[in-house]
Amino acid sequence: MTCDSILKLIPLYYYGELTPDEEERVEEHTHGCPTCTRELAQQRALAAALDKRQIAPAPMLLEDCRSDLIAAIQGGAPRIAPAAKGAWRLFLDAMAASFSGPSLSGLARLRQPIGALALLAIGFFGARLINTAAPSSTDDVYSTVRSVQPDNAGGVAISLDETRRKVVKGHMNDGNIQRLLLAAAHEDNPAVRVESVDLLRSQSGSSEVRDTLLNVLSQDTNPGVRLKALEGLKPLAADSEVRKTLRRVLLADDNAAVRVLVIDLLVANRDDNMVGMMQGLVQQENNDSVRRKLEKALRDMNASPGRF
C-alpha cells in the first residue's frame, strides 16, 4: 500500500471507523513508515487539542431550559382541545384587563406571546390531524407549512415540511383540508398565513373558520394577514361577536389600514353603541386618514364628531 492511500485512512483509523481489514493494513504500513507514523501522531495531537475546546453547559442553563420548556408546554399546548378557543379566551381576558385604562399599547404587547401560544398549540393540533387525514398523504411527520397553493378548480395544495416535505391535496370543502388551513393560518411564514386566510374567507360560514379569522385579526403580527382576515369577516359584519372584536381591534390595532377597514365594516351595520366610542376615538386618533374616516362615519350616522 502506498503512503497516499494510507494517509487517507488515518483520520478514520483514529476514529475507529475502518473495517478490520483496512485497520490491519494501516497498522502494518505505519509500523515501517516514519512519514505515516508522524501523520498518525499529528492526528492524535489535533484530536487532543480539539478535546480541550469542549465545553459543558452550566447546570443552571440546563435547569433554565427545562423550566422554559415545561412552561411553554403547560401554558400553551393543550394536547386534546383545539387551542384556538383557549388562546382566544386568554386574549379576551387580557383585552378586558388592558382596556380598563386608556392604554392602547396593551394589544401590541400581548400579540407576541399569545400569537406564540396559538402557534405552538395549533402546530400540535395540526400535527395530530395529519395522522387521521384522509386526503392523499403517506408521511406523518411535519412541523412547518411551507406553502399553500390554490388551483383554478377549487382545490388546494398544502406543502408541509420537517425533515421531509409532502403535499396534501384535496377540495376546499374537505373537512381535513379546512382544518389544515386553519392550522396554516397560524404558521410562522406570513405568506402561508395570507394564502390560508384568503382561502378560508370562502368558508366563513363555519364557526370554526369565523373563530380563526377573529383570532388572526386580533393576534397576527402581520398587518397583511390581519387585513385578509378582515375581508373574510365582511359577510359577518352584523354578527355581534364579530362586532365586539372589531370594536376592540379599532381601539388597539397599530396599523392604520386595518383601522380604516374596521370602521368600514362597523358602519356598514349601524349600531348606536358605536357612536360614543367613535366620538372618543376621534379625539385620540393620530392618523389623519383614520380620523377623517371616523369623522365621515359619524357624519353619516348624523352624529357630531364630538370635538366641537
Partner: peptide, 26 residues
C-alpha cells in the same frame, strides 16, 4: 459546542423539544 452561545443553545433546546412534543405521536 456548535454554536458557542448559551442563548442560541437555549433556543435550540426549546425549539427541538417543542417539536418533539408536537410530533411525538408520529
Amino acid at each position: 459546542n456548535l454554536l458557542r452561545s448559551p442563548e442560541d443553545a437555549r433556543d435550540v433546546y426549546q425549539e427541538a423539544f417543542l417539536r418533539v412534543y408536537r410530533n411525538l405521536h408520529a
